[in-house]
Design a protein around this nucleic acid. Structure first.
Lengths: 376, 376
DNA sequence: TAGCAGAATGTAAACGTTTACATTAATTGT
DNA sequence: ACAATTAATGTAAACGTTTACATTCTGCTA
């Protein structure tokens, strides 16, 4: 948290006292004994067995019409809410999934998450989430939640499995339902197990966006990568190399700037680029946030985009089209990614066989105003 | 989803086959019987009672050193993971909190969420989240989760209580632990109950940022609001009016443009502003995303910021300083808001009395490049 | 009318913990 | 050395559901 954030306390009129209402004390309210009713009391009230209540509520067709109506009415009447813990314990299903994510406030991620939440909710699942900040211990502790029966499955945004090495090595370790989103697992971690993955084809995408630049006549294309260890970065980099090779252009390591999927990396790495003697005519940022940081530094140094330098990003976050200039980038089907993740995960949880271990969703390069032909 | 997103399927080399590893079938792996061990088996293995195991693990000081070591070792050895459902059922505590939020992909929200997650995690709680998209039914269904014992408390970003009206009216309705984040509850919903709130002083903030504009000599300040029903919008609007009054400037309704906290609203409302005969010299957007939309449309219409028009935002999302021009805005202490929310909530859950029903955190107007004196 | 199938309901065990209470072991004071 | 404490452990009930199995009811057929 930067110095800019050293807030001074500002005293001000208390906006919170809509004091036309008189407020009861809330704590005492909470301290009241739970008025809640359980299945037993409900059964007793109705003079029937708990089994009937349960059936009327969960398997309405296994019960007579009269019975069904009677207990459903009573349930509504009394405000009966079945205790999911009791149910979960008995059924060994939680109807929760956990999503493990390095940074939930990343624009691309939060888009996918939103979609996940919606899809899960549609199928009666809730989603817990764990923001790991890339910390291994955090990953592992969240991964543990399915073994402690707090969740039925995992959607993972990391290229690491959320389990400790010792667990992974263990003979009787059982892989819980898990699907990877956007990041392929490192094969050394796989240990012979195939984990479903939903992603785009990052190498194709990297190749295409590079080709776009190439087609515009660019020959010196700097690259600001994400975390160099991440498969998506590696794949996009491979795509970049492929495109160069296809165009018979020599790959030059000095044009590669190792960064991160962050604004700051984009900004600082661009400064580095600018500080070098000969400037590239284009910069390929491996994510849109990075591209924004890049645009920022470019403008600060009075190099104009796209006139002086073309810039492309990756992801097509919702802000991208509002950048100045509007960003050329490759769009990922955020909604579909999220949806597929939960579809697959829930299928696995339900014990269905998965036909496709990895689903590759279509991407699309969208050309906007941050790139232009080098000759013009 | 716009037409731009009509992806064509692109066939491409399957990047996923690192086929140097041979993959076992995953489904069959999952289908294996649960190898997991329970407290009973662990107890039997050690030849002790389940009570001792439980104590050694949860109340290590209530047990002899030898015993503690023995079972902890065995637990690690066997990979014993206590079933939280069993525990929750017994203890009536879930160690979950749920956060109910209209849009998790909103930049400001996701910042707060991240902070919430961290704080909760630090205190041993997990967080579930529900993205309601502003839909009342969704709010209510998520609110229900504490009554179904899936969570111990609620952090709510809406100005509505996540309970049905009939529940609220009900005589024996018991308010669960809940705290509001950023949005004050509508007083009519309060029904006599005081709900903790953590927020900034929106009217002071609105007043200050308006005053900033006023000090620069601006007299015609257009305002693009958030959802006009939301208290935060109302409060910021009030601040705007207050500042005008202090400066002896007449409030003019035609300068008020009712929008939303979105990029699109910023863009479209700015177009409206521009279409009117006399232009304001400044625009106050009630959130940064809106401001970005505003900047975008301004630029598209060749009005330059801040030369022709000054623009201010609200929130200071992480992108704000990277906008072009860098955005003058009011910073909210995102991290602190999240932290305080969980502190208070967990205190309430623990049955402690809350001294402060509403905590007002300090904000700060941060001046960057999107505003300038009107004379210059 | 007796017999019987099928539907409707009831009985009670089970899920995996925690914990009040009972018991046994260890420690202290005299 | 023997009570009297205190510490350590064990026993078994309880949490709130679901569900296999047993029982009762209903309506038909022969």
């Amino acid at each position: 948290m930067s110095a800019e954030y050293l807030f001074e306390t500002n005293s001000s009129p208390d906006i919170a006292s809509d004091s036309d209402v008189e407020l009861r004390d809330w704590k005492s309210d909470y301290a009241k004994p739970m008025a809640d009713i359980g299945i037993k009391q409900l059964a007793k009230i109705l003079g029937i067995s708990t089994a009937s209540v349960s059936r009327a509520l969960n398997n309405p067709d296994r019960v007579s019409d009269a019975m069904r109506k009677r207990v459903q009415d009573a349930a509504k009447q009394t405000g009966y809410r079945p205790n999911k813990m009791g149910a979960s314990l008995r059924t060994a299903k939680t109807k929760n999934i956990i999503v493990i994510i390095p940074d939930i406030s990343d624009s691309f991620n939060s888009g996918v998450i939103r979609s996940i939440e919606r899809a899960a909710s549609d199928r009666g699942y809730s989603v817990l989430f764990g923001d790991t900040q890339g910390i291994r211990e955090a990953e592992i502790s969240y991964g543990d939640m399915v073994r402690t029966r707090q969740a039925d499955g995992i959607i993972c945004f990391s290229h690491n499995l959320p389990f400790s090495d010792s667990d992974l090595d263990s003979e009787n370790f059982k892989m819980p339902p898990i699907v990877n989103s956007c990041e392929q697992l490192q094969s050394l971690q796989l240990a012979g197990r195939a984990i479903p993955l939903v992603t785009i084809d990052n190498v194709a995408a990297g190749r295409e966006i590079t080709k776009h630049l190439l087609d515009l006549g660019h020959r010196e294309i700097a690259l600001i990568t994400g975390d160099i260890d991440s498969p998506s970065t590696q794949q996009r980099l491979l795509g970049y190399k492929l495109a160069l090779k296809e165009a018979n252009i020599e790959f030059r390591q000095e044009l590669i700037y190792e960064g991160e999927y962050t604004l700051e990396a984009g900004s600082s790495k661009t400064a580095e680029i600018l500080s070098n003697s000969k400037r590239p005519s284009a910069i390929f940022c491996m994510c849109d946030e990075t591209a924004l940081g890049c645009l920022y530094t470019l403008k600060k140094n009075n190099v104009s985009v796209p006139t002086d330098i073309s810039v492309v990003g990756f992801d097509d976050i919702k802000f991208a089209r509002y950048f100045s200039p509007a960003l050329t980038t490759v769009a990922q089907p955020v909604d579909e990614i999220g949806k597929q993740c939960v579809e697959i995960l829930l299928d696995v949880i339900d014990g269905q066989t998965i036909d496709q271990k990895t689903v590759i969703l279509p991407h699309k390069v969208v050309v906007r105003d941050s790139t232009q032909s080098i000759s013009s």
